[in-house]
């Protein structure tokens, strides 16, 4: 057993934080992000020899995480799709960066899941279209169209991001 999971702890130490941030971007919810990370890591742990045999173990686990989000979104019966949670929302901070970050996170959450996923992978994680397609399990064409729709929608929602002025739509409920 010791051998079978060798390297798992190092992997977690090296990659858990990045995976957690990805989970947060995909869900916009801290609690869900933590659950998803644990879920994805447990799946990876279960099949650790295969994970370490992959070209990029981190990409492998990232993909597991992405599908865990989709799974959760669809299959969990209740309370898993927190489209509405403000529980972990930071209190209003007028300083620019935090405000911008919150606006972006909320903007992402307002996107349909498919668009959100490809936008996060392409633009937050800087993956190529091909890498994104492989990770999501769809065609490059779908990645292109979903990304461009997602970005257009984000622009619509956020307006210009050059200003630290709070965005009326996104702040209306705070």
């Amino acid at each position: 057993m010791q051998n079978r999971t060798e390297g798992f702890e190092d992997f977690v130490a090296g990659h858990a934080a990045a995976l957690l941030r990805l989970a947060y971007l995909l869900t916009g919810d801290r609690g869900h992000a933590e659950d998803l990370l644990q879920d994805a890591l447990e799946r990876a742990y279960r099949h650790w020899p295969r994970v370490v045999a992959a070209d990029r173990p981190d990409a492998y686990v990232r993909r597991v995480l992405i599908h865990a989000v989709t799974d959760r979104f669809r299959r969990r019966r209740y309370a898993e799709v927190q489209l509405t949670s403000y529980a972990d929302r930071a209190t209003v901070d007028i300083t620019g960066d935090i405000d911008l970050r919150d606006s972006l996170v909320r903007g992402l959450r307002a996107l349909p899941l498919g668009q959100r996923t490809v936008v996060v992978l392409r633009h937050c994680l800087d993956l190529s279209e091909a890498e994104t397609a492989e990770m999501v399990g769809c065609s490059v064409g779908t990645v292109k169209s979903q990304t461009s729709r997602g970005l257009a929608r984000l622009r619509e929602l956020l307006g210009d991001v050059d200003s630290t002025t709070p965005q009326p739509i996104l702040r209306s409920s705070l």
Binding site: F8, L22, L100, H123, D126
Partner: peptide
């Protein structure tokens, strides 16, 4: 800042750390 560059710097701006008892 355009949306793309704002998105690119987004992950680093998120202050989240895995729970210590994660493993």
């Amino acid at each position: 800042k355009d949306i793309e560059s704002a998105l690119r710097s987004l992950p680093d701006s998120i202050d989240l750390e895995p729970r210590p008892d994660l493993i």
